[in-house]
Computed example of a mutant assay.
Amino acid sequence: MLSHVWKWVVQEWAEVRRSTRAACIEAGPERDTFVQSLKAAAAAIAAWAVSGWWFQAPMALLAPWTAIAMVGTTVYQSVRTGIQQFAIITLGTLWASAAMAWTHDRVMVSMLLTLPFMMLLGNYRRFGSQGIYGATTALFVITGGVASTSTVGHRLLETLIGAAIGLLINAFVLPPVHLRSVRDHLLRLVGETEDVLGAMAAGLREEDGLKNAEGWHRSAGALTLSLQSVSEARYWAMEGSRWNPGGRLRRTGSMPPPFAEDDRWSRVCTGVLALARTLKGLSDDAELTAPSPDFLRLLSDVLDQASHICAIETELLAQTGTAELRERRDAAYPEARRALGLLTEAFHRQVPQASAVGGELLIEARQLMLELAPSA
Rank of each mutant, 00 (worst) to 15 (best):
E30I: 01
A356N: 07
H154A: 13
A42M: 01
L303G: 08
F86A: 13
M111H: 06
T320L: 05
A339S: 15
G271M: 07
W265Q: 12
L372P: 10
L62M: 08
K7D: 04
L303M: 15
V71T: 03
C24N: 06
Y124S: 08
V196A: 12
L279M: 10
S226A: 10
A201K: 01
A346R: 13
S226W: 11
Q353A: 15
Q85C: 08
D301S: 03
Y235D: 04
P245A: 01
W102H: 02
L121T: 05
A376R: 12
S300P: 06
E360G: 03
T136H: 05
L275A: 00
D32T: 06
G144R: 05
D208K: 00
R31W: 13
K280M: 08
R328K: 11
W48F: 15
G215D: 13
S266T: 14
V357A: 03
L91G: 11
D285M: 03
I312T: 08
S219E: 15
G215V: 12
A138L: 11
W53N: 04
T103Y: 02
R267G: 05
V146K: 09
G131N: 07
A98G: 07
A290W: 02
H4Y: 07
Q305K: 08
K7M: 07
A233D: 11
N212L: 12
T270R: 06
I88P: 01
P58F: 06
I309M: 15
Q305D: 15
R328H: 12
L273K: 05
V16Q: 11
A286W: 02
G341W: 14
E192Y: 11
E15P: 01
Q36H: 09
S266K: 10
L156D: 05
T151F: 09
T103A: 12
P116D: 02
V196N: 14
R349I: 08
W236Y: 14
K7E: 03
G131E: 09
T114A: 10
T278N: 06
G358S: 13
A376D: 09
S226P: 02
W265C: 03
V190Q: 14
A63R: 00
L368M: 12
A138E: 09
L168H: 02
S292Y: 00
A46M: 11
T33G: 10
R366I: 06
R234M: 13
S231R: 15
W53G: 06
V173I: 14
A40K: 01
P58Q: 12
Q85K: 13
L368R: 06
V9N: 05
F86W: 08
W265Y: 15
R250A: 12
T81N: 14
C24S: 13
W216N: 01
S300L: 04
F259I: 12
M119E: 10
T322A: 03
R349C: 07
Q11W: 11
A233L: 09
A41V: 02
H178C: 07
L157S: 06
W53P: 03
W6S: 04
T278W: 04
A67V: 04
G209H: 01
C310F: 08
E158H: 07
A222S: 13
T20E: 05
W6H: 08
A41M: 14
E313W: 04
M59K: 00
M1G: 12
A163V: 05
T322N: 04
D285Q: 07
T193Q: 15
H154C: 06
V5W: 11
A354K: 05
K211L: 10
L113S: 02
G271Y: 01
S254D: 11
C269F: 03
T278S: 11
